[in-house]
Design a protein around this nucleic acid. Structure first.
Lengths: 115, 115
DNA sequence: ACATTGTATAAGCATACACTTATATGTGCA
DNA sequence: TGCACATATAAGTGTATGCTTATACAATGT
């Protein structure tokens, strides 16, 4: 029960975080592009606090990193996490979320974060 | 939100099941070799009901299949589940559990299931 | 300094989870 | 038929989860 168990626990922790539709979608969103919280809220059609709490879990688990830019906070995949290989391969099996980001951009909603 | 959402939910459900150290270890155990419940109990050093309940979850989720052989029940990976590709890739990143099965076999414990 | 906007945190609540102990079911054998 | 073994299920319990509403914090612009 030395090194191996650690790996299993580590992987399980990551998979647990990915094992929620909201968080899994967020991960798919931020996988390639940095995303602003307000964009995520808009795309997921969820309350801002709820999204914020999911982001906190992903942050605490080390799966995403944040960058503050003015009033906005941008999230992206934390590529230095130990389980990134697993994460990438999981996300590779999911439908691309770029379209949703593009659709949001094209929708003309008054999101100021991209200016 | 047609086909895509379904896939995300499906993947999330699988990942949720994998997101527990006990279940993840079980999956790693039964990945290549059919395993008897008593072997799993012995390897995990957990109570039999607890293991049984985890197996039920994996069964209900379609991740494993069971085969009854005499008094024993053998579990193995359900390779016809929709998310097998994800499962395989996740498990590929985990330490091999064959050693534990071998160690159990060599330990001389009175497990009758293999005769 | 103050109001506005964007995000995080706090508190409360209903539900889900993982374990325990106790019991039921199922199979083989005397 | 009755006992022993292997596994499943039931009931109970403490904790975790995901949401809601309310509020705090942070940065900007006037």
């Amino acid at each position: 029960m030395g090194n191996e168990t650690f790996h299993i626990d580590q992987a399980a922790q990551t998979l647990k975080l990915l094992g929620d539709p909201t968080r899994l979608t967020i991960m798919a969103l931020v996988q390639h592009t940095e995303c602003c919280v307000c964009e995520i809220v808009e795309i997921l059609q969820m309350s801002q606090p709820s999204v914020s709490q999911h982001l906190k879990k992903l942050r605490d688990g080390g799966l995403v990193k944040e960058r503050r830019g003015g009033r906005w906070v941008f999230y992206s995949l934390n590529t230095s996490h130990e389980t990134v290989p697993i994460i990438h391969q999981v996300l590779a099996h999911l439908p691309d979320q770029k379209e949703k980001l593009k659709a949001l951009e094209d929708s003309g909603l008054p999101l100021q974060c991209r200016r």
